[in-house]
Simulated scan of single mutants.
Amino acid sequence: MIRVIAILAFWLLALPAARAAEICNETSYIVEAALGWRSNDEIAVEGWTRVRPGECVRAGPDIPAESGEPLLLYARSSAAYLGGVREWRGDIPLCVGPSDFSAEGVTDCEALGLEQRGFAILRGEHRQRTVLVEPAGFGDRAEEAGVQRLLQATGADIRAIDGVAGRRTTAAIAAFVRNAGLPRVPERPELIDALEAAALRRNATTGLTLCNETGEAAAAVIARQRNDAWESRGWWRLEPGACARVVAERLTTRAIHVYAELTEGNRPLSGGVEVFCVAPSRFLSEGRDQCAERGYAQAAFRQIPEPVEGSATLTFGPEDFDAEPAPIPELRDGGDEE
């Protein structure tokens, strides 16, 4: 992760302008990056710059760097991967779009159909060349690790992401090339692109999706087992008529439970039978016991429907919520897809 210094956003207005930065990707994920910089008296933001594992790409404004002005960076992984989107972020809130975008001087993200994300500050040597990493520290093995992770996302039997092209990886590549009807094994960048496209097609609808047909705004929490222990997390905000994919991996069982509230009046989801811990704002609770002792409230969760081909959808209607408010304080901040 990129180390950042917490600082107020208005400092940008006092600094002269910057030049393009080099973004290097030493992770096993295809990364999409957005950059922010000062433009006149406002902050301009632009995205997305796509960077394959093992690549370096120049992005941002091409302006002389003698001034020493920093850039702002937010990066996310491609949506191709099982387990959801990964982020490389900081503390400066700016607006981003779901696809290619540019924005300047925007303060109300939601009104323009944009989302708010935290940007990291790039100064000094990181201003000229910043390296995105993950805990495994792949370094010059990032490209091969990226191929392995994408093979895994397409359903190949890849058990370890280590950046070493062993027999299992080589066999999985050969099977993918054969099944995709490619005339030969492509060069790594071309192979990465083909694998990403296949993974996006395969995983576009997998996982758990929650839909809100109540006519009011709602917020939801999920509970599931992780490493033999239960955890609950939330909240995901659901606008009227909207859906959110809250779990991105392929589902094999019904062992996920959901709780929700209508935000106007805090009316809780009815019909729940399994009790888990909840909090009034964005949270992650490990364990389902002794909620009060750990500073949480409790709520009764419903089990999700039986998954079909790796996916399940739970739709809320007005009849799914109690008439009386829940005994939990006002909510909620939005959540991220897992």
Score class of each variant (00 low, 15 high):
261 E>A: 12
127 R>L: 12
204 A>N: 11
303 Q>L: 01
258 V>S: 01
75 A>W: 00
262 L>Q: 10
95 C>E: 08
43 I>D: 14
134 E>L: 10
29 Y>V: 00
149 R>N: 15
322 D>I: 02
281 S>I: 05
190 E>Q: 15
46 E>L: 12
96 V>A: 09
266 N>T: 11
148 Q>C: 00
34 A>L: 09
315 T>W: 04
224 R>N: 02
199 A>P: 01
48 W>N: 02
141 R>Q: 07
260 A>L: 07
275 V>I: 09
119 F>P: 01
95 C>F: 06
5 I>V: 14
93 P>L: 10
145 A>V: 07
146 G>C: 02
329 P>V: 04
54 G>H: 00
300 A>C: 01
95 C>T: 07
129 R>E: 13
88 W>N: 03
281 S>Y: 11
232 S>I: 09
219 A>Y: 08
167 R>D: 14
299 A>F: 08
234 G>R: 01
335 G>N: 08
275 V>N: 01
305 P>Y: 00
170 T>Q: 15
296 Y>F: 15
2 I>H: 02
203 N>M: 12
91 D>Q: 11
222 I>Q: 05
70 P>H: 08
213 E>R: 15
249 E>R: 15
117 R>H: 03
324 E>M: 07
57 V>H: 04
189 P>N: 04
290 Q>E: 14
234 G>I: 04
226 R>P: 00
78 S>H: 02
281 S>K: 15
185 V>H: 03
58 R>D: 13
108 D>I: 07
95 C>V: 12
229 A>T: 13
35 L>C: 03
6 A>W: 10
215 G>R: 09
186 P>Y: 03
211 C>A: 12
323 A>G: 15
10 F>L: 13
41 D>L: 14
200 L>R: 13
217 A>T: 11
69 E>T: 05
210 L>A: 07
56 C>Y: 08
54 G>V: 06
206 T>A: 08
127 R>M: 08
285 S>V: 12
163 G>S: 05
121 I>K: 10
62 D>E: 13
247 V>D: 10
102 S>P: 05
159 R>F: 06
28 S>W: 02
187 E>A: 10
338 E>W: 01
240 P>H: 11
266 N>P: 05
134 E>F: 04
240 P>R: 10
308 V>S: 09
190 E>S: 08
259 Y>M: 12
195 L>N: 01
174 A>R: 05
298 Q>F: 08
286 E>L: 13
136 A>L: 10
115 E>Y: 09
51 V>H: 01
203 N>Q: 12
282 R>K: 14
1 M>Q: 06
24 C>E: 15
56 C>A: 11
145 A>K: 01
152 Q>D: 04
243 C>T: 13
